[in-house]
Amino acid sequence: MRGGLGRTIRKRTSFPISVSDIRKWAIAVYYPEEPPTEYLGAGAAGGDPPATAPEEFNPFAWATPGREPKNPDASAGFLERQAGITPPDVMFVVNGGTVCEYGVPMQEGDVITADFTLKSYTQKEGKRGPLLITETQDRWTNQRDELVRNAVMTYIRY
């Protein structure tokens, strides 16, 4: 597994972000309240100013160009399977933390490219036995090569 550390193991490019993607995201995360009106407009496609996505918006959900439709991998070895690496012998995964720096905002029409890197593996002993702590880095840029976000995520697997 350590052979995959430090190199780009998956590169994704999104479809152009649509105002509908932004609207649905806002409705979901603000539920049960209505989201702010800035997320509910028609966007540039409907004659309004271009919609700006919430900072934490995910433009890669469900479909990206060239990706075959398939059920998402919900297994604890999903990180390595994405990279074509033999996964560790783990059953469960929980989110340990995130450090994210933001650059320019994502707007309607933007096409986002992500470079995904396996950053580190660490083993620890936890209440439920051995834990595999895995850090990943996901660096997003837009079609103008401007930094959108750089996130380091920690996954705890056991």
């Binding site: 409705i27 539920y31 995910n58 998402p72 919900a74």
Partner: peptide
């Protein structure tokens, strides 16, 4: 589940737990 299912739907995060 009312919050989580909505979020799963927009973030493609259908994890059994």
């Amino acid at each position: 589940f009312a919050n989580w299912n909505r979020y799963a739907a927009v973030n493609e995060e259908f994890i059994p737990i």
